Amino acid sequence: MRPRSRWAFQHVAVGGAESVVFFWLPAPRFGRETAPVRLRGLDPAARYRGEATGEVQHGAVLLGHGLRQQMPSGDCASAVVHLVRVVQAVGFHQRGPALVIR
């Protein structure tokens, strides 16, 4: 049996308003890109903002394609991604300001 090259653990708030994903890479994989991690428990019709980067992604993409995380270099590298569901403010254009549910 081949050892796992990467680990990811996801925690989702009740209702899917927030999610935290923990990534752990025991050893570097030179010249090989890691596959995205498909998330669970999110609303496919919603959009989610990464708290650290501000990047917004659609729930359907996170569920179907997955979340790709750039890992720091070195052995036992880890990263944490905190996603928060974004709600459009009433009366604003789709690309306008958004409110974050907390």
Rank of each mutant, 00 (worst) to 15 (best):
R2S: 10
R2F: 10
P3V: 05
P3I: 02
R4C: 08
R4K: 13
S5W: 04
R6K: 12
F9G: 09
F9I: 10
F9Y: 12
F9M: 09
Q10V: 06
Q10W: 00
H11A: 15
H11F: 07
V12Y: 01
V12S: 03
A13V: 06
V14T: 12
V14Q: 12
V14H: 08
G15R: 06
G16C: 06
A17M: 06
A17F: 06
S19Y: 00
S19T: 03
V20R: 11
V20N: 02
V21C: 06
V21E: 02
V21F: 04
V21W: 01
F22D: 01
F23A: 00
F23T: 00
W24E: 05
W24P: 00
P26A: 02
A27D: 10
P28G: 05
P28H: 05
R29L: 14
R29V: 13
R29Q: 15
R29I: 08
R29D: 12
G31M: 07
R32F: 12
R32H: 14
E33C: 07
T34C: 05
A35S: 13
P36T: 08
P36S: 09
V37Q: 10
V37T: 11
V37G: 00
V37P: 00
R38V: 07
R38C: 14
L39N: 02
L39R: 02
L39I: 06
L39A: 03
R40A: 13
R40Q: 14
G41E: 05
D43W: 01
D43N: 14
P44H: 04
P44K: 04
A46G: 08
Y48H: 09
Y48Q: 09
Y48A: 07
Y48N: 07
Y48W: 10
R49C: 05
R49I: 12
R49Y: 01
R49N: 01
R49Q: 13
R49V: 15
G50R: 13
G50M: 09
A52W: 01
A52H: 07
A52P: 01
T53I: 03
G54V: 04
E55L: 12
E55N: 04
E55F: 04
E55Y: 03
V56R: 10
V56Y: 04
Q57L: 15
H58D: 11
H58E: 15
A60M: 05
A60D: 13
A60N: 08
V61P: 00
L62T: 01
L63D: 01
G64K: 12
G64Q: 15
G64E: 15
H65G: 02
G66E: 06
L67F: 07
R68A: 14
R68Q: 10
R68D: 06
R68M: 05
R68C: 04
Q69K: 15
P72A: 10
P72Y: 10
S73M: 09
G74A: 07
D75H: 12
C76I: 00
C76L: 08
S78M: 10
A79L: 02
V80H: 08
V81C: 09
H82Q: 11
H82P: 01
V86A: 04
V86F: 00
V87A: 12
Q88N: 14
Q88A: 15
A89V: 13
V90S: 11
G91P: 00
H93M: 06
H93Y: 06
H93D: 14
Q94A: 10
Q94L: 05
R95A: 12
G96E: 04
G96W: 02
P97E: 10
R102S: 13
R102W: 09
R102K: 10
